[in-house]
Design a protein around this nucleic acid. Structure first.
Length: 891
RNA sequence: GCGGACGUGGCGAAACUGGUAGACGCAAGGGACUUAAAAUCCCUCGACCUCGGUCAUGCGGGUUCGAUCCCCGCCGUCCGCACCA
């Protein structure tokens, strides 16, 4: 199918246009080559200047870059170029997050080896990135599937093993019986494998884990130090780590109801204050006690089985009925041994959190209340809002889980919930059950250890060997890397490493006997958890050169999508801590500044409207008739419905290929457009008209500069302090200062607006200069202003700027030229225009000297005709003068 | 359910720490140039009217000389987490 790009149809002459038009196709590659020749963007670890590390989240080599990449890398490149101009030693590297399932899927579907597929994709995407003119240090490039990289990752794994940060345990996984693979939770859709559609089973597998929970408290506390992170991301991580303060409470089992050997049940609670409202205990289906009971009691066995199969999908949980089964076991209340309560197995109790057992307080918890109503258990209100009356307070359909005053709680009555918490906690810690305290204060985290085992081929092999005699034996470091074999097949489901004829058979490094390799590979999130550290010295034999790593880290500005707010960023924070404990780096936090950019979105088009076939914008013509936009098919003219604006995605076909845009408009236009209009953290709507606007800007800038260049070349760039050049110098220096602030705050859209203003302001003077009008001071001022313009727009449109810089007679590469310095005396105006309000409504303006005294302002204001008119003879009660801001007269 | 963010012209958005609401761009309308078109340039562009004003930042209150901004209560949209004891 031939892809028709609408741009060519509308403007077939863009490229072949008359010679005075700027031709990005020729110019851009020329400057890219010059930058490469000058090694302008290669960072030197020994450079003594202050460092600045800017990094964009590296891409997965899917084969093509998309507009999201363009936006992400354009932003990073502005920061990199700007900081470089400001005199920093900038590290701006790029690599490839290259392991993962799509390569294996491609292998299965297209009979191409994952390695070949991946490296081909890298080659084509690299060419696309190069066409964008990004100021990247390509000399440090690597892919995570390079043996050189995963070799060092295996080294890190072994170091972490030595430090006890890695362990194996049996754990439940989602197992796809058709594909014979483990699925992540996100890959289970309505209980079925996303690819095979098979009903997913819960399986117990022995898997490798990283002890991220060792750092729970630190990962939480250190969030406070990340003041250059979005508040939102910090909050998301905080909730994910999920710290709660409570206590464990041990409940003694009434002996005659107890199965053998079970004499107590331990629960975790954050509300020990509500203990007198307890009416039952509930344990998870996977609780050891439940398992034991299931062995003896078929009804319990059946219930537990059911719980395990119950939907884990999000919607299912919302509506799932709270159900349970009475185990027949009774326990004694910890604060009153004569009080006996039933123990249920319940479907809403999670084995993974706390102790896998809870006590139910129906009056204080909606879930417990529903359960109690269903099984006819007592509901005793124990906490009452402070403004209610004991006589009338009752629990109906809604539990009360707030703070308040204790009631129906014996010795706690009248206390606040907070006081009651402490009293109960102290009492239970001081009471012995057996020879242990009955309860203990305990902090609990929601964060789980990180399971990294994947039963897949295209990932970093876990470097251990299983020996029947010696057990789990790490591969000796000198025997690394454990290389992936190339000769694997993908014609059957399951892990190709498992069925490789020889790869897994090795001798035990300890006893020399026959042993087998671990065939699990690592989660690809491991690969991306330390790549930014590797960039600091990718040539090292060890995982890092600690000196280089400590020099460059933390990353000063990290830019990427909000979708990585939790996992990637949390794993990276953990990994940096783990690498610190193993001596590879001496920083704790990897990313000092984080910026999460918005998506690139686009209209959708469907044949026949909702439910119809999606149509690509490349096949669409948009027309405007009587203020209504209509879309039609380019080929046949058939009318197509314009749908909602959505994230660009292949499935909705609303993608615009960056290659097409760069080919027809040039990289500078694409970069400038994705940076303009929308604030960078918000979504930007891709529109043909918007791109054309950006393109008009580049052409206009070129025209204005090139027409005046031969005259301007003859003047020395110099700001004018007086005469007709002064306003030119003023606007240039003001814009310079403002754009600098905007870049510092990553407010690219505002920088764009200011640059437009400057271009608008310089259009007249440039035309005059081109015509040879104006004196030498004026020419000098215009040249200086033009150079300022070209230099401040350069981070966004680097090729065009180099070209302008060059035709203005400069011999240096703009990419290697220092940022201009603004002159404050040109930024500040001597006379101010103050708005004058009467009773808060603007009635006049007052032009007055910046340093005028308050009295002078008051006096001058009252002389204004408009003010006198508004006052209408009334005497002002009060005149508020906000210096250099506003005057408000109150009558 | 819990947590968070956002709501400003036809559209994307500006407005610094409470101080002239709508910069800049897109779209639209009018004009100049042109045989014509494209490109370019100039003008208009929140609403209403009596052309001097009045009303306007989701809605209703409040604080203030002054509120898009701060506070309280609603409405709407989006995002994250979700049986977490």
């Amino acid at each position: 199918m031939v892809k028709v790009c609408p741009i060519f149809l509308k403007f077939p002459d863009i490229i072949e246009m008359a010679s005075e038009r700027y031709n990005p196709r020729e110019t851009e590659s020329r400057w890219q080559q010059k930058w490469a020749e000058a090694k302008a963007f290669e960072a030197d670890n020994a450079d003594p200047r202050e460092k600045y590390y800017v990094l964009e989240m590296f891409p997965y080599p899917s084969g093509r870059i998309h507009m999201g990449h363009v936006r992400n890398y354009a932003m990073g490149d502005v920061v990199a170029r700007y900081k470089r101009a400001r005199g920093y030693n900038v590290l701006h590297p790029m690599g490839w997050d290259a392991f993962g399932m799509p390569a294996e899927n491609a292998a299965r579907d297209n009979k191409v080896h994952p390695k070949e597929w991946t490296y081909q994709n890298i080659a084509s995407m690299k060419a696309q990135l190069k066409a964008m003119g990004l100021s990247l240090d390509w000399s440090r490039e690597f892919a995570t599937c390079d043996v050189d990289y995963y070799h060092r990752q295996q080294h890190l794994f072994l170091d972490m093993m030595e430090k006890g940060l890695v362990y194996r345990k049996q754990s439940k996984v989602n197992w796809d019986p058709v594909d014979q693979t483990v699925l992540a939770n996100e890959q289970v859709i309505d209980g079925r494998g996303w690819r095979s559609g098979a009903l997913v089973e819960q399986r117990e597998l022995v898997q490798w884990f990283f002890k991220i929970t060792d750092f729970s408290q630190d990962l939480l506390d250190s969030l406070d130090t990340l003041d250059q992170w979005p508040e939102k991301v910090r909050l998301m991580q905080k909730n994910w780590i999920g710290r709660s303060e409570g206590m464990t409470v041990r409940w003694q089992v009434v002996p005659e109801t107890a199965p053998a050997g079970q004499d107590e049940v331990t629960v975790y609670t954050t509300r020990p204050d509500t203990l007198f409202g307890a009416s039952f205990l509930a344990i998870a289906a996977d609780h050891p006690l439940a398992r034991e009971l299931a062995g003896e009691n078929p009804a319990i066995e059946a219930f537990c089985q059911e719980c395990r199969h119950q939907g884990t999908s999000l919607a299912a949980l919302e509506t799932a009925e709270k159900r349970g089964i009475d185990t027949g076991i009774r326990v004694r209340h910890p604060l009153d041994p004569s009080w006996e309560l039933p123990v249920y197995v319940a479907n809403f109790v999670l084995m993974e959190y706390g102790t896998g057992a809870i006590f139910g307080c129906p009056s204080g918890d909606q879930r417990d209340l529903e359960f109690a109503r269903k099984y006819d258990l007592p509901v005793v209100a124990v906490v009452m809002p402070a403004d209610r009356d004991v006589a009338t307070f009752a629990i109906g359909d809604a539990a009360y889980d707030g703070d308040g005053v204790m009631i129906n709680s014996r010795f706690l009555n009248g206390k606040t919930t907070e006081e009651a918490f402490d009293i109960v906690a102290d009492r239970l810690s001081g009471t012995l059950l057996g020879n242990m305290p009955q309860g203990e204060r305990k902090v609990n985290f929601r964060l789980r250890d990180w399971g990294v085992s994947r039963q897949r081929y295209w990932g970093c092999p876990i470097p251990v060997i299983h020996c029947e005699v010696c057990g789990v034996v790490p591969v000796p470091k000198k025997a690394l890397p454990v290389k992936l074999p190339d000769d694997v097949t993908f014609d059957q489901p399951g892990n190709p490493l498992d069925r490789h004829p020889t790869w897994r058979h090795v001798n035990c490094p300890q006893c020399g006997g026959a042993a087998r390799r671990e065939t699990d590979t690592m989660d690809t999130f491991v690969d991306s958890s330390w790549y930014f550290t590797r960039f600091t010295a990718p040539w090292e034999d060890d995982p890092t050169d600690p000196q280089a790593a400590n020099h460059w880290l933390p990353v000063d500005q990290y830019i990427g999508g909000i979708e990585h707010a939790i996992l990637h960023l949390l794993y990276s924070r953990f990994f940096t801590r783990a690498m610190r404990e193993t001596g590879h780096v001496d920083v704790k936090e990897p990313f000092k500044g984080l910026f999460t950019q918005g998506m690139v979105v686009h209209e959708t088009y469907r044949r026949g409207g909702a439910g119809g076939e999606w149509i690509s914008p490349a096949d669409i013509r948009i027309e405007e008739l009587d203020g209504k936009r209509r879309a039609s098919l380019l080929s046949t003219g058939e009318e197509i419905a314009i749908g909602s604006i959505e994230k660009m995605s292949k499935s909705k076909k609303n993608v615009v290929d960056p290659d097409d845009i760069i080919a027809s408009y040039g990289a500078d236009t694409a970069r400038f457009f994705v940076l303009s209009d929308s604030p960078p953290d918000r979504d930007v709507i891709w529109s043909e008209a918007g791109v054309e606007g950006a393109h008009r800007f580049t052409q206009r800038l070129w025209r204005l500069v090139s027409e005046a260049a031969s005259r301007l070349k003859q003047a020395e760039p110099q700001a004018a302090r007086e005469g007709e050049g002064r306003p030119v110098s003023q606007i240039a220096h003001r814009t310079l200062k403002a754009v600098q602030d905007d870049y510092d705050r990553l407010a690219f859209n505002k920088a764009v607006a200011r640059i437009y203003e400057l271009v608008n302001a310089l259009a007249g003077p440039l035309a005059r200069a081109a015509a040879g009008e104006g004196d030498a001071t004026f020419m000098a001022a215009v040249r200086e202003a033009t150079e300022i313009l070209v230099r401040i727009v350069a981070p966004m449109t680097p090729h065009l700027s180099e070209e302008c810089w060059s035709i203005l007679g400069n011999e240096t590469l703009l990419a290697q030229t220092a940022w201009p310095v603004h002159d404050e005396t040109l930024v500040v105006e001597n006379d101010l225009i103050l708005p004058v309000q009467v009773n808060g409504k603007k009635r006049a303006e007052l032009t007055i000297a910046r340093d005028a005294s308050q009295d002078a302002v008051e006096a001058a204001v009252l002389q204004l005709d408009a003010v006198r008119l508004a006052l209408d003879g009334r005497a002002p009660k009060k005149i508020i003068v906000v210096p250099q801001r506003i005057v408000n007269i109150v009558v």
